[in-house]
Write a protein that binds this DNA or RNA. Structure first.
Lengths: 128, 128
DNA sequence: TTGATAATGATAACACAATATCAAAAGAGA
DNA sequence: TCTCTTTTGATATTGTGTTATCATTATCAA
């Protein structure tokens, strides 16, 4: 029987309120407010459970550990800040002419776009 | 002094002739023709050297080990076949309206696109 | 409140890709 | 050809992220 615990509430809440994909360690940090002493094992366990029940989905970026974001969003892509390394969600505005660049006989099932740059917070604070 | 060996020639040739990004194990396989008994350590060593002198560059895809392709190509993106898991190069045809989807204050420095689907070889052979 | 048991936290163990080690083999100047 | 030294292949080791283990703690139905 599944139990309701402070840890699970804190982890779910952290992911819900982040508004951007979080990695396991980011989830750990963000959840500590609502669950002091939280351990990384519980974070991984909860992420697994939330994935299994479809509450969150995995965001994989090249060369990085998985991040997780709340499910049910519209099709979107991501932006990675090369200063703070946070990942943000980008609104709509999707590829128009995917087909044109495709070799003959190739069939497309999905695509993903990753934009690199500097987020507003880091750009404002300059350097760092 | 750097020496010219059959292994290095075979590895460089494999990457040159592949026409698509190869992972370390793919390089190993493709190079065995020209260098029987080739070991994976030599593949990694050669890849490192080719990267260092700018002959090849790294192609990172989400959740996968790095692949490598010959350098000097025009800006392009990649296609990953979900059947055979090979990665192919896509021709030009790039994102027009990246800016429009960006939050205020974000600065773009680069982007990458990955298209998922089935390559012509796998589509022709159906299933598998 | 009690008791059965699910969940937790610390940490050991694991999986995987990549690097280090080292004796043996091979390249190349003399 | 000989010799010095780089390179190689087998494999041990490392590093990073994730999972397993297990004694302890906490939930919640009765």
């Amino acid at each position: 029987m599944v139990r309701d615990t402070a840890q699970r509430r804190a982890i779910r809440r952290a992911l819900e309120e982040a508004g951007r994909p979080l990695g396991a360690l980011e989830v750990l940090e963000a959840s500590k407010a609502g669950a002091p002493g939280l351990g990384i094992a519980t974070v991984y366990r909860s992420i697994k459970a939330l994935l299994a029940d479809g509450s969150i989905c995995e965001v994989l970026l090249p060369g990085e550990a998985p991040r997780y974001e709340f499910a049910g969003k519209d099709h979107h892509h991501h932006f990675r800040c090369q200063r703070c390394e946070k990942v943000f969600e980008l609104g709509g505005g999707c590829l128009p002419d995917l087909k044109s660049a495709l070799p003959r006989g190739f069939r497309v099932s999905s695509h993903e776009v990753l934009v690199h740059g500097v987020c507003s917070g880091c750009a404002r604070g300059k350097r760092r």
